[in-house]
């Protein structure tokens, strides 16, 4: 149990997906301008991440490895994730329209998001078991949410700032991200 809490907290604080692993930088910089879109996007990421872990982990451990096909990991994972996201989108559209309206538009974005593929691959480099992998996916997703929400707040402040011309726009956003990442360095050693 302690172990699971450690993995969960590490995913949020010390090994934050965006701020220390640079996964999911595109949505982090692209969709973080408004708080509510940032939150919806993050919820969709959490959902897809946990779901793809639930599906890809057994496929890798029970089908690919016993048959000596583990070199197909990359191809199988990306195709499974793409198909899964498509299915979820269709399912939401048909059966849960309110959820579809809230998260649906973010789903196709997530298919080619390095965060989801990255996390499903990371479970195996860290040799997590199935439960640990799910907790790790959840922790990483929540970590993404935390980073997105924090950064959306900072960006709304940046909008009203008077910034020198060469740094205006993307450069100052990246430097702000650097400062957020720096503050997250302060958590190192806290867990794990």
């Amino acid at each position: 149990m302690n172990n699971l809490i450690t993995i969960f907290l590490a995913g949020i604080l010390t090994e934050n997906m965006v701020l220390s692993k640079f996964l999911g930088i595109c949505p982090f910089l692209g969709v973080s301008k408004k708080l509510n879109t940032a939150v919806s996007m993050s919820l969709a990421v959490i959902f897809v991440m946990v779901l793809s872990t639930l599906v890809t982990y057994p496929i890798y451990a029970n089908i690919l490895v016993p048959n000596g096909l583990d070199y197909l990991q990359t191809i199988v994972f990306i195709l499974v994730i793409a198909a899964l996201v498509q299915l979820v989108e269709i399912f939401f559209k048909r059966f849960v329209p309110p959820l579809y309206r809230a998260l649906g538009i973010y789903l196709p974005l997530i298919t080619t998001n390095c965060a989801v593929l990255g996390i499903t691959l990371l479970h195996f480099t860290k040799e997590y078991n199935f439960v640990e992998a799910i907790v790790n996916a959840l922790g990483a997703g929540v970590g993404f949410l935390v980073a997105m929400v924090l950064f959306a707040g900072i960006r709304s402040k940046l909008e009203t700032c008077d910034i020198i011309k060469p740094l205006n726009g993307l450069p100052i956003t990246l430097i702000a991200a650097s400062i957020v990442a720096l503050s997250f360095l302060g958590f190192s050693g806290l867990v794990g």
């Binding site: 060469p166 993307l170 450069p171 990442a181």
Partner: peptide, 17 residues
């Protein structure tokens, strides 16, 4: 470390801009 990555990239984009 990660913050340096964001920082250097930001400066490089500023130079390119």
């Amino acid at each position: 470390l990660p913050p340096g990555g964001f920082f250097v990239f930001g400066i490089l984009i500023a130079v390119a801009n």
